[in-house]
Design a protein around this nucleic acid. Sequence first.
DNA 1: GCCAACGTTGGC
DNA 2: GCCAACGTTGGC
Length: 161
Amino acid sequence: MPWLLKSEPDVFSYADLVRVGREGWNGVRNYQARNFLRQMREDDLCLFYHSNARPTGVAGVARVVREAYPDDLQFDPASEYFDPASTPDSPRWSMVDVAPVFDLPAVLTLDTLRTLPEWQDSPLTRRGSRLSVLPVTPGQFRAALRAAGVEDRDGLIGGGR
DNA sequence: GCCAACGTTGGC
DNA sequence: GCCAACGTTGGC
């Protein structure tokens, strides 16, 4: 299943992901988002979304390269993501690792996404939604890449479901 | 920088 | 278990 990951580009952009090659997606501190992280499978594709940006929108596509494991920051007292209530025996928060796949020719803006029929009923376009990790249907994924002008390469976008 | 919407916290 | 207060998210 494809996903969407939000990141503030001032903090960590898609270009940063390309630069580092691979990144641990830690610091998620919302239960719904965490539960989605735990459902991610290796090689699942992710739309990499820039929030709090100009413009806001999808900047590239990433891929899950390691499935959920305990978020390292929850045990680090020096981290702003430290959670004193979490223990190594039963970690409360999870993270995955992601790697870049390709960037989009231009940012696929939120405004454009809102025009796509497939995206009418998504937590992303729903007013007031703050979910930072959310599932994307294959139809939404295909429609997004099509709107971004990306041709299907090697059947990446897929046909089924 | 503003502020609406939302999730979490904590007193009761 | 309710709900007011508070902090955060994120578009604008």
